[in-house]
Amino acid sequence: MILPNPANLKDLKKYPLTLTLVALNLVIFMMIFSGVRESLPSTKLLKDDGLELTGRLYYQFLKEASPTELAKKPSWILKMSSLNQEHMMVLGAYALRDSRFLTTAETTEFRGDEIKIATWKKQVVQFHEGYQNHLLFRFGLSSLDKSSLSWLTYQFSHSNWFHLLSNLAFLLVIGAAVEVLAGSGVLLTVYLIGGIAGGMGFLLSNLHGTVPMVGASASISALLAFYCVAELRGRVRYFYFLSPLAGHFGSIYLPTLLILPLFLLVDLASFWSTPEGLGGGVAYTAHLGGTVLGLSAGLIYRWASGRFFSMQNL
């Protein structure tokens, strides 16, 4: 186990805004999200039979789509066979993320078991309504709802305790480091604009997605990238624990420069290794968007503080 443990973390007075942001995320979660069930509204659509039926109808929907539209779809979709139940279930899961399909489903004419289709259409309408009323959808950012406020609210919303605490642990460590280095104003700017850049990254990769994004991870990625560039030659203290025996735990200093490519590579690798259209619950593109913003902000900071040229001498 190895965790970042900066030396300045003990002096709480040096990073008041970081603590405020942590407290704000915590309070918002406790007041709004802690009592909310994480899962989507309960519906037969999400069970095996429902997914299979949705897949069959989506298969017909795709048959009617233009070659240009089909070309935009993931390549694996074109390999699906309507005679394979497993394929239809996977296609059904993908279909429920396609906003164009869901919004037109009620009026589209489908061929097949008419009784099932009629029931399915009613369920889709209910699912759509329930989905839009879900708190995570209202506070999150998605292609279906790009209201100006959701760009801000999604940065302070989290889906569950684990999501919240893992993000806050990173925010505390990286936020404190950035605030001590560059001040509260820079921290707030990078956090908020990094979040917006992360949102743009997410929406660009999900032009017609329905799944909302929540969480501060894009903002944290921006802060991380900013710190690595701004403090290029610095070293961060880490705490490691191998076993309780003497010498098997302690602190080690690693260069900040090492952290950035590793985080960036993990996000890129995770994004590229996932079959298109089937996200694993983590918005890697949002992390990448935040990272790009953080890198740019870090370079500007170095230039403004006269350290840009010292970086070139590395």
Binding site: M80, E86, H87, V90, L265, V266, A269, S273
Partner: peptide
């Protein structure tokens, strides 16, 4: 991360194979 990055495309194809047939 370096190995994952290099093999990302390969891993994606493998996951697609399993997606189409377990």
């Amino acid at each position: 991360p370096i190995v994952s990055f290099i093999l990302a495309g390969f891993v994606r194809q493998t996951r697609t194979f399993f997606l189409l047939d377990m």
